[in-house]
């Protein structure tokens, strides 16, 4: 399942940009693929992140993986409760499971619309 109101990276991050602020998270496909999440490390407010670079790390069953930024900009808000309740990512990765909000200065050139991302996921399954 994808949401039409946002864009996606091929590495399974989503972003929804409203009024110059990007809300960023990971897709339900990513959550299902990772399974058994145990740790999430997010940057503090004020961090400048760069599109296509890692801005966080997530530890799942037996592997630590990067979370890649869909946009460049400054982190203005962090979902501080999320690392302590990773089950939220299983139940609602699209809204309650948001990770950071970023004041956007640029976007990745690799962003996909919902239909393109959905095709990628279906090809993988």
């Amino acid at each position: 399942m994808t949401k039409d109101d946002r864009k996606y990276l091929p590495t399974h991050e989503w972003c929804r940009i409203q009024d110059g602020i990007a809300t960023i998270g990971i897709t339900d496909f990513a959550v299902q693929s990772l399974s058994d999440l145990v740790f999430l490390d997010l940057p503090p407010i004020g961090t400048r992140i760069s599109a296509d670079d890692a801005f966080g790390e997530i530890e799942s069953v037996k592997a630590v993986s990067d979370i890649v930024a869909p946009v460049s900009g400054e982190v203005v808000e962090v979902n501080e409760a999320l690392p302590d309740d990773l089950d939220v990512l299983k139940t609602d990765p699209w809204d309650a499971g948001w990770m950071v909000k970023v004041k956007v200065t640029g976007e990745s050139g690799n962003l996909l619309d919902a239909a393109s991302y959905q095709r990628q996921v279906e090809a993988h399954e």
Partner: peptide, 23 residues
Amino acid sequence: ARHDLVAPDGRKLCGSAQRRTLR
């Protein structure tokens, strides 16, 4: 845990971990 190598008595003999990077 799942995937670990264990002895016949169940004690762990080999544990591994992964790091995956994209950039």
